[in-house]
Write a protein that binds this DNA or RNA. Structure first.
Lengths: 125, 125
DNA sequence: TCGGATATGGAAAAAATTGTCCGTATCCGA
DNA sequence: TCGGATACGGACAATTTTTTCCATATCCGA
């Protein structure tokens, strides 16, 4: 893994949450796992635009953060299933509320982004 | 500014929210502005560990996303004040709920992170 | 033996974000 | 004129995140 040069400090709750779900695909992974898509390959097929590597890395991070549990079945070919821990499940309402806000304001946001970004104000008349 | 090579798509509400508050200091800036710290220099003094440059950039992004309003006073030396738009204010409850979750689970998270990350499972009989 | 399924890792490139350093401009006071 | 306050921008470096590419291992079936 990549080793950070600047240590992280979690001085507020927000930074803790962002450390946990900040990765590009993490919230989507949690959503899919909650929907029953549990195996790495299935998750990769469900998110084809993400690289296999990052999905693995982010799943492992979620595991190391106590959000997911990883269960290995001693079969061949190997079988692995991820599931949400109770800690992970406590996260779902927060993610849902984030998602709801975004859904609700999506149209407004897209409109704003489409516009010319800045209309200059008169400056020091 | 840096020009993105891969265009972003906002396929879910979550990604919209993350586009808006994903920057390293954005939520903190919103918090401080809501608390009445409105001027760029004051915000920089309030977040000494962030560089002046990034704070400016993120304030401008928040403005271009319709979250903040920037008001220029035609004085010298120049005076600028940021304030939350109604759109920005609608964001506060979401950020607060994110922060609450983090506060609530901070201790548990720190414990998990302190531990050795992985205890290997037996693998294939 | 070869290619498919499974799961995963290392190394390095690419992309994105954040930080550093220097420069602009204006007025005030020493 | 010089340094301070204000606010801001460009160019580039440093850091972090994500992607790409190549590799391992095992069993099954052709």
């Amino acid at each position: 893994m990549y080793e950070k040069k600047i240590p992280k400090s979690f001085d507020c709750g927000f930074s803790v949450l962002m450390e946990i779900i900040g990765g590009k695909w993490k919230s989507y992974l949690l959503y899919l796992i909650d929907q029953g898509v549990r195996r790495p390959t299935a998750l990769q097929r469900a998110i084809p635009s993400a690289s296999r590597r990052v999905l693995d890395l982010q799943l492992r991070e979620l595991e190391s953060h106590g959000i997911l549990q990883r269960k290995i079945y001693p079969e061949l070919p190997p079988k692995v299933e991820y599931s949400l821990t109770p800690f992970g499940e406590s996260l779902l309402p927060v993610i849902a509320s984030m998602d709801r806000w975004g859904e609700k304001h999506l149209a407004q946001f897209e409109q704003l982004v489409k516009q010319k970004p800045v209309e200059p104000q008169p400056h020091g008349g």
